[in-house]
Design a protein around this nucleic acid. Structure first.
Lengths: 228, 228
DNA sequence: TTTCATTATATGGTATGCCAGAAACCACCG
DNA sequence: CGGTGGTTTCTGGCATACCATATAATGAAA
Protein backbone atom coordinates (compact mmCIF):
# COMPACT_ATOMS: atom_id res chain seq x y z
CA UNK A 1 0.00 0.00 0.00
CA UNK A 2 1.40 3.29 -1.10
CA UNK A 3 1.01 6.15 1.25
CA UNK A 4 -0.52 9.08 -0.51
CA UNK A 5 -0.66 10.87 2.77
CA UNK A 6 2.08 13.17 3.88
CA UNK A 7 4.16 11.56 6.54
CA UNK A 8 3.68 13.75 9.54
CA UNK A 9 6.49 13.20 11.95
CA UNK A 10 6.20 14.48 15.48
CA UNK A 11 8.23 17.62 15.25
CA UNK A 12 11.68 17.43 16.70
CA UNK A 13 10.71 18.87 20.03
CA UNK A 14 14.01 20.17 21.27
CA UNK A 15 13.48 20.48 24.94
CA UNK A 16 14.77 23.36 26.94
CA UNK A 17 18.26 23.27 28.32
CA UNK A 18 16.73 23.30 31.77
CA UNK A 19 14.84 20.06 31.29
CA UNK A 20 17.67 18.39 29.43
CA UNK A 21 20.10 19.39 32.14
CA UNK A 22 17.63 18.10 34.70
CA UNK A 23 17.46 14.72 33.03
CA UNK A 24 21.20 14.51 32.58
CA UNK A 25 21.90 15.40 36.18
CA UNK A 26 19.31 12.99 37.48
CA UNK A 27 20.75 10.18 35.39
CA UNK A 28 24.28 11.05 36.46
CA UNK A 29 23.35 11.05 40.12
CA UNK A 30 21.44 7.81 39.69
CA UNK A 31 24.41 6.12 38.09
CA UNK A 32 26.71 7.30 40.83
CA UNK A 33 27.61 5.10 43.74
CA UNK A 34 26.77 7.72 46.29
CA UNK A 35 26.88 5.32 49.20
CA UNK A 36 30.48 4.35 48.62
CA UNK A 37 32.76 5.65 51.31
CA UNK A 38 34.51 8.78 50.20
CA UNK A 39 32.11 9.42 47.38
CA UNK A 40 32.20 12.98 46.17
CA UNK A 41 28.82 14.34 47.10
CA UNK A 42 29.46 17.93 46.30
CA UNK A 43 28.45 19.47 43.03
CA UNK A 44 30.11 22.54 41.64
CA UNK A 45 27.82 24.81 39.68
CA UNK A 46 30.45 26.36 37.52
CA UNK A 47 32.20 23.08 36.81
CA UNK A 48 28.91 21.43 35.87
CA UNK A 49 28.03 24.39 33.74
CA UNK A 50 31.24 23.85 31.79
CA UNK A 51 30.79 20.08 31.57
CA UNK A 52 27.25 20.37 30.27
CA UNK A 53 28.13 23.29 28.07
CA UNK A 54 25.30 25.43 29.37
CA UNK A 55 25.27 28.53 31.44
CA UNK A 56 24.58 28.51 35.13
CA UNK A 57 21.03 29.77 34.72
CA UNK A 58 19.34 26.67 33.25
CA UNK A 59 21.63 24.52 35.35
CA UNK A 60 20.47 26.22 38.51
CA UNK A 61 16.86 25.84 37.49
CA UNK A 62 17.44 22.13 37.02
CA UNK A 63 19.13 21.97 40.41
CA UNK A 64 16.18 23.76 41.97
CA UNK A 65 13.94 21.02 40.63
CA UNK A 66 16.21 18.29 41.90
CA UNK A 67 16.22 19.99 45.27
CA UNK A 68 12.43 19.99 45.26
CA UNK A 69 12.53 16.31 44.45
CA UNK A 70 14.87 15.69 47.34
CA UNK A 71 17.83 14.47 45.32
CA UNK A 72 20.14 17.32 46.20
CA UNK A 73 20.35 19.83 48.96
CA UNK A 74 21.36 23.38 48.22
CA UNK A 75 23.14 25.01 51.13
CA UNK A 76 23.23 28.75 50.57
CA UNK A 77 26.76 29.83 49.86
CA UNK A 78 28.03 26.51 51.15
CA UNK A 79 27.57 24.22 48.26
CA UNK A 80 25.25 21.83 46.51
CA UNK A 81 25.26 18.30 47.83
CA UNK A 82 23.82 15.04 46.66
CA UNK A 83 21.50 13.78 49.35
CA UNK A 84 22.34 10.50 50.98
CA UNK A 85 19.20 8.99 52.39
CA UNK A 86 19.42 7.61 55.88
CA UNK A 87 18.43 4.06 56.59
CA UNK A 88 15.33 5.30 58.37
CA UNK A 89 14.32 7.23 55.28
CA UNK A 90 14.89 4.22 53.07
CA UNK A 91 12.69 2.16 55.35
CA UNK A 92 9.99 4.78 55.14
CA UNK A 93 10.20 4.69 51.37
CA UNK A 94 9.70 0.95 51.38
CA UNK A 95 6.76 1.38 53.73
CA UNK A 96 5.16 3.90 51.40
CA UNK A 97 5.88 1.59 48.53
CA UNK A 98 4.08 -1.21 50.34
CA UNK A 99 1.07 1.00 50.92
CA UNK A 100 0.88 2.15 47.33
CA UNK A 101 1.59 -1.13 45.60
CA UNK A 102 -0.88 -3.00 47.77
CA UNK A 103 -3.51 -0.44 46.85
CA UNK A 104 -2.49 -0.85 43.24
CA UNK A 105 -3.03 -4.59 43.51
CA UNK A 106 -6.49 -4.02 44.91
CA UNK A 107 -7.31 -1.67 42.08
CA UNK A 108 -5.88 -4.10 39.55
CA UNK A 109 -8.36 -6.75 40.62
CA UNK A 110 -11.10 -4.29 39.76
CA UNK A 111 -9.93 -2.74 36.51
CA UNK A 112 -7.26 -4.88 34.87
CA UNK A 113 -8.13 -7.21 32.03
CA UNK A 114 -7.59 -10.95 32.32
CA UNK A 115 -5.08 -10.76 29.51
CA UNK A 116 -3.03 -8.11 31.21
CA UNK A 117 -2.98 -10.02 34.46
CA UNK A 118 -1.97 -13.15 32.62
CA UNK A 119 0.97 -11.23 31.25
CA UNK A 120 2.50 -11.20 34.71
CA UNK A 121 3.39 -14.87 34.32
CA UNK A 122 6.10 -13.89 31.87
CA UNK A 123 7.90 -12.08 34.63
CA UNK A 124 7.79 -14.95 37.07
CA UNK A 125 7.52 -18.33 35.41
CA UNK A 126 10.85 -17.89 33.67
CA UNK A 127 12.59 -18.23 36.99
CA UNK A 128 10.61 -21.27 37.93
CA UNK A 129 13.65 -23.51 37.97
CA UNK A 130 15.92 -24.22 40.89
CA UNK A 131 18.83 -22.36 39.35
CA UNK A 132 17.73 -19.00 40.58
CA UNK A 133 21.01 -18.14 42.17
CA UNK A 134 22.69 -18.30 38.78
CA UNK A 135 20.46 -15.58 37.38
CA UNK A 136 20.42 -13.11 40.18
CA UNK A 137 20.88 -10.12 37.93
CA UNK A 138 18.06 -11.08 35.62
CA UNK A 139 15.87 -12.00 38.53
CA UNK A 140 16.50 -8.66 40.12
CA UNK A 141 15.35 -6.91 36.95
CA UNK A 142 12.34 -9.16 36.52
CA UNK A 143 11.47 -8.54 40.13
CA UNK A 144 11.45 -4.82 39.60
CA UNK A 145 9.40 -5.16 36.44
CA UNK A 146 6.92 -7.42 38.16
CA UNK A 147 6.16 -4.81 40.75
CA UNK A 148 6.07 -2.04 38.19
CA UNK A 149 3.63 -4.15 36.16
CA UNK A 150 1.22 -4.48 39.05
CA UNK A 151 1.28 -0.74 39.51
CA UNK A 152 0.65 -0.26 35.81
CA UNK A 153 -2.27 -2.68 35.97
CA UNK A 154 -3.94 -0.50 38.56
CA UNK A 155 -4.30 2.22 36.00
CA UNK A 156 -3.42 4.79 38.63
CA UNK A 157 -0.87 7.13 37.11
CA UNK A 158 -0.20 8.86 40.38
CA UNK A 159 0.88 5.69 42.13
CA UNK A 160 3.23 5.01 39.25
CA UNK A 161 4.59 8.52 39.46
CA UNK A 162 5.24 8.44 43.18
CA UNK A 163 6.81 5.01 43.21
CA UNK A 164 9.00 6.04 40.32
CA UNK A 165 10.20 8.95 42.36
CA UNK A 166 10.97 6.65 45.25
CA UNK A 167 12.76 4.26 42.99
CA UNK A 168 15.18 6.99 42.02
CA UNK A 169 16.31 7.10 45.61
CA UNK A 170 16.21 3.42 46.37
CA UNK A 171 17.99 2.39 43.20
CA UNK A 172 21.33 3.16 44.74
CA UNK A 173 20.57 0.96 47.71
CA UNK A 174 19.24 -1.88 45.66
CA UNK A 175 22.62 -2.61 44.20
CA UNK A 176 24.05 -2.97 47.65
CA UNK A 177 21.28 -5.30 48.64
CA UNK A 178 22.30 -8.87 48.27
CA UNK A 179 19.32 -11.07 47.98
CA UNK A 180 19.90 -14.26 49.83
CA UNK A 181 19.02 -17.41 48.02
CA UNK A 182 16.03 -18.06 50.20
CA UNK A 183 14.71 -14.57 49.71
CA UNK A 184 14.79 -14.88 45.95
CA UNK A 185 13.08 -18.23 46.01
CA UNK A 186 10.51 -17.17 48.53
CA UNK A 187 9.96 -14.05 46.49
CA UNK A 188 8.95 -16.09 43.48
CA UNK A 189 6.49 -18.06 45.55
CA UNK A 190 5.02 -14.80 46.78
CA UNK A 191 4.74 -13.49 43.26
CA UNK A 192 2.85 -16.56 42.15
CA UNK A 193 0.42 -16.22 45.00
CA UNK A 194 -0.07 -12.58 44.09
CA UNK A 195 -0.83 -13.45 40.50
CA UNK A 196 -3.31 -16.04 41.63
CA UNK A 197 -5.07 -13.53 43.86
CA UNK A 198 -5.25 -11.10 40.97
CA UNK A 199 -6.58 -13.74 38.61
CA UNK A 200 -9.30 -14.72 41.02
CA UNK A 201 -10.12 -11.05 41.49
CA UNK A 202 -9.60 -11.35 45.20
CA UNK A 203 -8.84 -7.75 46.06
CA UNK A 204 -8.47 -8.22 49.79
CA UNK A 205 -6.02 -11.04 49.36
CA UNK A 206 -4.05 -9.40 46.60
CA UNK A 207 -3.65 -6.31 48.68
CA UNK A 208 -2.55 -8.22 51.73
CA UNK A 209 -0.09 -10.39 49.85
CA UNK A 210 1.55 -7.45 48.14
CA UNK A 211 1.77 -5.53 51.38
CA UNK A 212 3.27 -8.41 53.28
CA UNK A 213 5.66 -9.15 50.46
CA UNK A 214 7.01 -5.63 50.45
CA UNK A 215 7.12 -5.43 54.21
CA UNK A 216 9.31 -8.52 54.13
CA UNK A 217 11.72 -6.53 52.03
CA UNK A 218 11.46 -3.76 54.56
CA UNK A 219 12.35 -6.04 57.39
CA UNK A 220 15.19 -7.55 55.43
CA UNK A 221 16.68 -4.14 54.74
CA UNK A 222 16.17 -3.12 58.34
CA UNK A 223 17.90 -6.21 59.57
CA UNK A 224 20.71 -6.78 57.15
CA UNK A 225 21.50 -3.69 55.14
CA UNK A 226 24.03 -1.37 56.64
CA UNK A 227 23.94 2.32 55.97
CA UNK A 228 25.40 5.39 57.65
CA UNK B 1 11.59 27.31 87.22
CA UNK B 2 13.93 30.05 86.16
CA UNK B 3 15.93 29.43 83.05
CA UNK B 4 19.58 30.01 83.74
CA UNK B 5 20.32 28.85 80.26
CA UNK B 6 20.81 31.28 77.45
CA UNK B 7 17.76 31.35 75.26
CA UNK B 8 19.03 30.12 71.98
CA UNK B 9 16.60 31.15 69.33
CA UNK B 10 16.85 29.57 65.93
CA UNK B 11 18.72 32.30 64.17
CA UNK B 12 16.59 34.47 61.98
CA UNK B 13 17.48 32.46 58.96
CA UNK B 14 16.63 34.85 56.20
CA UNK B 15 15.98 32.42 53.46
CA UNK B 16 16.95 32.97 49.90
CA UNK B 17 14.70 34.93 47.64
CA UNK B 18 14.15 31.75 45.69
CA UNK B 19 12.65 29.86 48.61
CA UNK B 20 10.69 32.82 49.87
CA UNK B 21 9.29 33.41 46.42
CA UNK B 22 8.46 29.73 46.22
CA UNK B 23 6.51 29.86 49.47
CA UNK B 24 4.74 33.06 48.51
CA UNK B 25 3.74 31.73 45.12
CA UNK B 26 2.55 28.44 46.55
CA UNK B 27 0.45 30.23 49.14
CA UNK B 28 -0.94 32.59 46.55
CA UNK B 29 -1.91 29.76 44.25
CA UNK B 30 -3.40 27.84 47.15
CA UNK B 31 -5.54 30.78 48.17
CA UNK B 32 -6.75 31.28 44.64
CA UNK B 33 -10.05 29.91 43.46
CA UNK B 34 -8.54 28.30 40.42
CA UNK B 35 -11.62 26.26 39.67
CA UNK B 36 -13.88 29.25 39.30
CA UNK B 37 -14.99 29.83 35.75
CA UNK B 38 -12.91 32.48 34.10
CA UNK B 39 -10.15 32.29 36.66
CA UNK B 40 -6.91 33.76 35.45
CA UNK B 41 -4.58 30.79 35.23
CA UNK B 42 -1.73 32.49 33.48
CA UNK B 43 1.24 33.85 35.34
CA UNK B 44 3.42 36.56 33.94
CA UNK B 45 7.07 36.32 34.92
CA UNK B 46 7.82 39.97 34.58
CA UNK B 47 4.66 41.08 36.34
CA UNK B 48 5.31 38.68 39.22
CA UNK B 49 8.90 39.82 39.40
CA UNK B 50 7.65 43.36 39.90
CA UNK B 51 4.96 42.38 42.40
CA UNK B 52 7.37 40.38 44.52
CA UNK B 53 10.11 42.91 44.11
CA UNK B 54 12.66 40.35 43.00
CA UNK B 55 14.36 39.78 39.72
CA UNK B 56 13.26 37.11 37.32
CA UNK B 57 16.09 34.76 38.21
CA UNK B 58 15.02 33.63 41.70
CA UNK B 59 11.43 33.81 40.55
CA UNK B 60 12.13 31.44 37.71
CA UNK B 61 13.90 29.05 40.04
CA UNK B 62 10.86 29.07 42.30
CA UNK B 63 8.64 28.44 39.30
CA UNK B 64 10.85 25.55 38.26
CA UNK B 65 10.25 23.98 41.65
CA UNK B 66 6.52 24.53 41.44
CA UNK B 67 6.58 22.95 38.02
CA UNK B 68 8.39 19.92 39.45
CA UNK B 69 5.73 19.74 42.13
CA UNK B 70 3.02 19.82 39.51
CA UNK B 71 1.43 23.09 40.56
CA UNK B 72 2.26 24.98 37.41
CA UNK B 73 3.08 24.08 33.86
CA UNK B 74 5.70 26.05 31.99
CA UNK B 75 5.05 26.15 28.27
CA UNK B 76 8.17 27.38 26.50
CA UNK B 77 7.53 30.81 25.05
CA UNK B 78 3.83 30.32 25.53
CA UNK B 79 3.31 31.14 29.14
CA UNK B 80 3.24 29.81 32.66
CA UNK B 81 -0.05 28.33 33.73
CA UNK B 82 -1.49 27.21 37.02
CA UNK B 83 -2.40 23.57 36.67
CA UNK B 84 -6.00 22.65 37.07
CA UNK B 85 -6.28 19.05 38.11
CA UNK B 86 -8.78 16.95 36.27
CA UNK B 87 -11.40 15.05 38.18
CA UNK B 88 -9.62 11.82 37.37
CA UNK B 89 -6.45 13.18 38.89
CA UNK B 90 -8.28 14.31 42.00
CA UNK B 91 -9.73 10.84 42.37
CA UNK B 92 -6.28 9.33 42.05
CA UNK B 93 -5.03 11.63 44.76
CA UNK B 94 -7.76 10.50 47.09
CA UNK B 95 -6.93 6.91 46.25
CA UNK B 96 -3.30 7.46 47.11
CA UNK B 97 -4.37 9.22 50.25
CA UNK B 98 -6.44 6.22 51.22
CA UNK B 99 -3.49 3.91 50.68
CA UNK B 100 -1.12 6.06 52.70
CA UNK B 101 -3.41 6.95 55.56
CA UNK B 102 -4.55 3.39 56.01
CA UNK B 103 -0.92 2.31 56.19
CA UNK B 104 -0.37 5.12 58.68
CA UNK B 105 -3.19 3.79 60.82
CA UNK B 106 -1.63 0.35 60.80
CA UNK B 107 1.71 1.80 61.82
CA UNK B 108 0.05 3.89 64.50
CA UNK B 109 -1.30 0.78 66.20
CA UNK B 110 2.29 -0.41 66.45
CA UNK B 111 4.18 2.68 67.48
CA UNK B 112 1.86 5.33 68.87
CA UNK B 113 1.49 5.80 72.62
CA UNK B 114 -1.84 5.34 74.35
CA UNK B 115 -1.82 8.99 75.33
CA UNK B 116 -1.32 10.17 71.77
CA UNK B 117 -4.10 7.95 70.50
CA UNK B 118 -6.38 9.19 73.26
CA UNK B 119 -5.70 12.70 72.02
CA UNK B 120 -7.72 11.91 68.92
CA UNK B 121 -10.90 12.13 70.95
CA UNK B 122 -10.48 15.89 71.12
CA UNK B 123 -10.93 16.10 67.40
CA UNK B 124 -14.10 14.04 67.32
CA UNK B 125 -16.03 14.09 70.58
CA UNK B 126 -16.60 17.83 70.32
CA UNK B 127 -18.93 17.22 67.45
CA UNK B 128 -20.80 14.51 69.23
CA UNK B 129 -24.01 16.48 69.36
CA UNK B 130 -26.75 16.50 66.80
CA UNK B 131 -26.08 20.04 65.72
CA UNK B 132 -23.34 19.12 63.30
CA UNK B 133 -24.80 21.00 60.43
CA UNK B 134 -24.42 24.24 62.35
CA UNK B 135 -20.68 23.82 62.66
CA UNK B 136 -19.73 22.67 59.23
CA UNK B 137 -16.73 24.91 58.99
CA UNK B 138 -15.27 23.79 62.27
CA UNK B 139 -16.08 20.20 61.53
CA UNK B 140 -14.34 20.45 58.21
CA UNK B 141 -11.20 21.70 59.93
CA UNK B 142 -11.40 19.11 62.67
CA UNK B 143 -11.89 16.47 60.04
CA UNK B 144 -8.71 17.49 58.29
CA UNK B 145 -6.81 17.61 61.53
CA UNK B 146 -8.08 14.20 62.53
CA UNK B 147 -6.64 12.63 59.45
CA UNK B 148 -3.43 14.58 59.77
CA UNK B 149 -3.17 13.39 63.36
CA UNK B 150 -3.40 9.75 62.38
CA UNK B 151 -0.64 10.29 59.88
CA UNK B 152 1.45 12.01 62.52
CA UNK B 153 0.86 9.11 64.91
CA UNK B 154 2.38 6.72 62.42
CA UNK B 155 5.72 8.41 62.86
CA UNK B 156 6.33 8.12 59.14
CA UNK B 157 7.57 11.48 57.92
CA UNK B 158 7.37 10.48 54.30
CA UNK B 159 3.68 9.71 54.45
CA UNK B 160 3.12 13.10 56.04
CA UNK B 161 5.20 14.73 53.35
CA UNK B 162 3.42 13.12 50.44
CA UNK B 163 -0.07 13.66 51.79
CA UNK B 164 0.82 17.27 52.47
CA UNK B 165 1.82 17.64 48.85
CA UNK B 166 -1.48 16.12 47.77
CA UNK B 167 -3.38 18.39 50.10
CA UNK B 168 -1.98 21.40 48.32
CA UNK B 169 -3.78 20.25 45.21
CA UNK B 170 -6.95 19.02 46.82
CA UNK B 171 -7.42 22.05 49.05
CA UNK B 172 -9.01 23.98 46.23
CA UNK B 173 -11.49 21.20 45.64
CA UNK B 174 -12.31 20.74 49.25
CA UNK B 175 -13.93 24.15 49.44
CA UNK B 176 -16.22 23.23 46.60
CA UNK B 177 -17.12 19.99 48.28
CA UNK B 178 -20.32 20.32 50.16
CA UNK B 179 -20.56 17.68 52.77
CA UNK B 180 -24.09 16.50 53.02
CA UNK B 181 -25.54 16.24 56.48
CA UNK B 182 -25.45 12.50 56.44
CA UNK B 183 -21.87 12.40 55.29
CA UNK B 184 -20.71 14.54 58.16
CA UNK B 185 -22.60 12.49 60.70
CA UNK B 186 -21.51 9.21 59.24
CA UNK B 187 -17.98 10.55 59.14
CA UNK B 188 -17.99 11.07 62.88
CA UNK B 189 -19.18 7.55 63.44
CA UNK B 190 -16.35 6.31 61.22
CA UNK B 191 -13.84 8.36 63.14
CA UNK B 192 -14.98 6.89 66.43
CA UNK B 193 -14.64 3.40 65.09
CA UNK B 194 -11.17 4.23 63.85
CA UNK B 195 -10.13 5.54 67.25
CA UNK B 196 -11.46 2.41 68.86
CA UNK B 197 -9.48 0.21 66.49
CA UNK B 198 -6.36 2.21 67.24
CA UNK B 199 -6.94 1.99 70.98
CA UNK B 200 -7.36 -1.75 70.84
CA UNK B 201 -4.23 -1.96 68.68
CA UNK B 202 -6.14 -3.72 65.98
CA UNK B 203 -3.94 -2.91 63.00
CA UNK B 204 -5.92 -4.84 60.43
CA UNK B 205 -9.15 -3.21 61.42
CA UNK B 206 -7.73 0.27 61.74
CA UNK B 207 -6.25 0.00 58.29
CA UNK B 208 -9.45 -1.25 56.76
CA UNK B 209 -11.62 1.36 58.43
CA UNK B 210 -9.40 4.23 57.36
CA UNK B 211 -9.20 2.93 53.83
CA UNK B 212 -12.93 2.46 53.52
CA UNK B 213 -13.57 5.82 55.09
CA UNK B 214 -11.39 7.60 52.56
CA UNK B 215 -12.73 5.57 49.68
CA UNK B 216 -16.19 6.75 50.67
CA UNK B 217 -14.95 10.26 50.12
CA UNK B 218 -13.58 9.16 46.81
CA UNK B 219 -16.90 7.79 45.73
CA UNK B 220 -18.68 10.88 46.91
CA UNK B 221 -16.41 13.12 44.89
CA UNK B 222 -16.71 10.86 41.89
CA UNK B 223 -20.47 10.92 42.11
CA UNK B 224 -21.31 14.44 43.12
CA UNK B 225 -18.47 16.83 42.48
CA UNK B 226 -18.38 18.44 39.11
CA UNK B 227 -15.12 19.49 37.53
CA UNK B 228 -13.94 20.33 34.05
C1' DT C 1 54.67 27.12 67.63
C1' DT C 2 50.11 28.32 68.26
C1' DT C 3 46.38 31.35 67.79
C1' DC C 4 43.72 34.78 66.13
C1' DA C 5 42.73 38.46 63.08
C1' DT C 6 42.90 39.81 58.40
C1' DT C 7 42.69 39.17 53.73
C1' DA C 8 41.89 36.54 49.62
C1' DT C 9 39.24 33.42 47.13
C1' DA C 10 35.75 30.42 45.99
C1' DT C 11 30.83 29.59 45.52
C1' DG C 12 26.23 30.23 45.43
C1' DG C 13 22.58 34.33 44.98
C1' DT C 14 20.72 37.86 42.29
C1' DA C 15 20.10 41.32 38.67
C1' DT C 16 20.09 42.47 34.01
C1' DG C 17 20.26 42.31 29.07
C1' DC C 18 19.74 40.08 24.90
C1' DC C 19 17.76 36.37 22.09
C1' DA C 20 14.26 33.40 19.87
C1' DG C 21 9.86 31.81 19.25
C1' DA C 22 4.93 32.48 19.45
C1' DA C 23 0.95 35.17 19.17
C1' DA C 24 -1.34 39.26 17.94
C1' DC C 25 -1.94 42.80 14.88
C1' DC C 26 -2.33 44.97 10.50
C1' DA C 27 -2.15 45.99 5.91
C1' DC C 28 -2.49 44.43 1.42
C1' DC C 29 -4.60 41.68 -2.05
C1' DG C 30 -8.06 38.70 -4.04
C1' DC D 1 -15.55 41.22 3.01
C1' DG D 2 -12.29 37.63 3.92
C1' DG D 3 -8.00 35.66 3.86
C1' DT D 4 -3.06 35.69 3.64
C1' DG D 5 1.55 37.34 4.48
C1' DG D 6 4.42 40.22 6.93
C1' DT D 7 5.56 42.93 11.01
C1' DT D 8 5.35 44.07 15.65
C1' DT D 9 5.07 42.80 20.30
C1' DC D 10 4.90 39.93 24.03
C1' DT D 11 7.02 36.22 26.77
C1' DG D 12 9.91 32.91 28.31
C1' DG D 13 15.06 30.95 27.60
C1' DC D 14 19.58 31.77 28.27
C1' DA D 15 24.11 34.03 29.12
C1' DT D 16 26.76 37.05 31.74
C1' DA D 17 28.29 40.23 35.25
C1' DC D 18 28.27 41.47 39.80
C1' DC D 19 27.24 40.75 44.77
C1' DA D 20 27.42 38.64 49.43
C1' DT D 21 28.95 35.34 52.35
C1' DA D 22 31.46 31.31 53.81
C1' DT D 23 35.80 29.32 53.88
C1' DA D 24 40.62 29.03 53.12
C1' DA D 25 44.99 31.16 53.27
C1' DT D 26 48.14 34.15 55.33
C1' DG D 27 50.67 36.58 58.48
C1' DA D 28 51.43 38.89 62.73
C1' DA D 29 51.33 38.67 67.63
C1' DA D 30 51.53 36.03 71.89
Amino acid sequence: MIKAQLEIQPIEEVQSLKSRTYEALKAAIGAMQIYEAGAELRLDERALSLQFGVSRTPLREALAQLEQEGLVRIAPRRGIFIVRKTKAEILEMITVWAALESMAARLATEVASDADIAGLHNLVDTFDSDAIEEHMGEYSDANIRFHAAIIALSGCKLIAEITNGLFTHVRGIRQRTIFEKDRARRSIVDHKEIIEALETRNGERAERLVREHTLKLRQHVEQFVLLD
